[in-house]
Every structure is written in structure tokens, then in C-alpha cells.
Amino acid sequence: MSVLSKSPWIIHYDGSSCNGCDIEVLASLMPRYDVERFGVINTGNPKHADILLLTGSINEQNKPVVQNIYNQMPNPKVVIAVGICATSGGVFRECYNVLGGADKVVPVDVYAPSCPIRPEALIDAVVKALGILEKKKAASLAEEVKK
């Protein structure tokens, strides 16, 4: 385990969610679930973040915003699609302004579908993301060695 996976910093962006998942993301930081005890910190700055939590589906207007946040994050980075809307569009799939899930614009590593997500499921997704983060880091190290 490297330092990175012991205290991952997350950034949360609300695509076009109904708020349900967003408040559950915040609720995970609260005394009941308290992910901060694992060193997980919710940051507002993409340049400080390792994990991007995307809630809600993608539409024309938030597409560049999501891409911008993703591009600003340093490597290695992991994207979690939180909730069914970020996974596939969910109940809003048929809406005219919904393009689909988060994977339409950024590569998604972990899908955590449910409506809305429960804090337990969210924490589970973040733990899963840590393994992927670790693998990505090892891969980029190996590449550097090769060079």
C-alpha cells in the first residue's frame, strides 16, 4: 500500500443528478459513516484529487465542465460513476437533454449503480477504486522504468 491509497482525496461533481446521490456523498463524510477516519478528504480542487465522484447523467452543458475537471486531475486518477444516472442515465435516460452515463465523456473505472446510492455502497466503491488506483500507479511506474 502506498501513501496514495491510504489517504485518497476525492472531488465530487454533480452532473445532472436529482441531489439524492449528492447528499449521500456528503452524508458519508458525516459522523455516522465518517470516511475521514480513513484519510479520505473531500476537496474542492481538482488538482488535489485522486478520485472523481460523478453523480448524475451527462448533458450538453456539463460535458465540458466534467472533461475540464477530469483533465485537471493529476495521474493516476480513478473515476467512480455514483448512482444509476451516472452509470446509464437511469430514470432520466429518455429525457431529451440527457446524453447518458458518465462514460460518455470520461473513462469510468468503478460503477456504483443504485437510486439513490447508500453511503455503505459508496464507501465500498471508493475502497474498490483504491485497488485500481494502486494498479494504475504500478503500471505508470513500470512504464517509467521501461523508458
Partner: peptide, 10 residues
């Protein structure tokens, strides 16, 4: 308009 989905049309 960042979260507009078009629910009324649904």
C-alpha cells in the same frame, strides 16, 4: 441549466 434534464417532457 447545468442540471437541466427535461423532466416535464418525460
Amino acid at each position: 441549466g447545468f442540471i437541466h434534464r427535461g423532466l416535464e417532457k418525460l
